[in-house]
Design a protein around this nucleic acid. Structure first.
Lengths: 131, 131
DNA sequence: TTGTTTGCAAACCATTTGCAGAATG
DNA sequence: CATTCTGCAAATGGTTTGCAAACAA
């Protein structure tokens, strides 16, 4: 479940995610990595993002349209501005007890839950104050 | 924000979502409606699902890949079986206070949050007991 | 009649995949 | 040397869109 090789492309992808404080989409990572290695292909970036997320080296954040990736590995919630699309981490703690409650009630084996808050960021609120 | 016409296609789409207790994808709705009106097009189904969700007549549930729709209109959480893809409602209440807490902490105007629990349903647990 | 909606097909976008060749351990 | 990984390009899956004809108000 963890046999792997250290290719420079894999490392570039991982570094690129770690170098960003926002939650980049696969394509943003592609562009970042592309700026360093102009021969790397989209396929390789996608493959490596999935590989790294599966091996627990990255977190996969599923937000509406394009998937995002995060180098913070602990479970946490995200906040999406529905206007500009920005994604940031939420300063609230993960409620693991919900997983347990739900498991007890349903018979499911619960692995986790994902929560995305939706709203408008301060910047976007100002933008449309007058429009 | 609500000027609309009552077309039989729109009604068929709405009825189709209401007729299901699971959380159908757009394509499932298309197939259901198609069984009644074999001339309706995918485009029309997608357009109407979006229209109805925007007008508050349906709830848009965003789960990993394909979007789902729900005729329950109150905010509630969902449970996804990561193996068979089934989606069901969660018997836990919506925590509106989280929205307020987050708004106070971040300055965002929070409209809501979406939570999807991920796990394996009892059926899928049994399936792979031996494999 | 006027503006909305439909059907169709093509376009889109993000992502995945098949394959032959390159690189890793 | 055996395998894993890459680049490329084509394929996929879900969804959106442009347009002319059909239709509701």
């Amino acid at each position: 479940m963890k046999q792997q090789r250290n290719t420079k492309q894999r490392q570039l992808v991982l570094d690129a995610v770690r170098a960003r404080c926002d939650h980049p989409s696969a394509d943003q990572i592609y562009l970042d990595v592309r700026a360093i290695d102009d021969k790397i292909s989209r396929g390789t970036v996608y493959r490596n993002l999935n590989f790294l997320a599966q091996n627990g080296e990255l977190l996969h954040v599923k937000v509406s349209n394009a998937d995002r990736f995060d180098c913070r590995l602990d479970f946490h919630y995200h906040l999406l501005c529905t206007e500009c699309g920005a994604v940031c981490d939420v300063p609230l703690s993960y409620h693991a007890e919900l997983d347990q409650q739900l498991a007890a009630k349903t018979g499911y084996v619960i692995e986790r839950h994902r929560t995305v808050f939706e709203g408008r960021c301060p910047g976007c609120q100002h933008k449309s104050e007058h429009s």
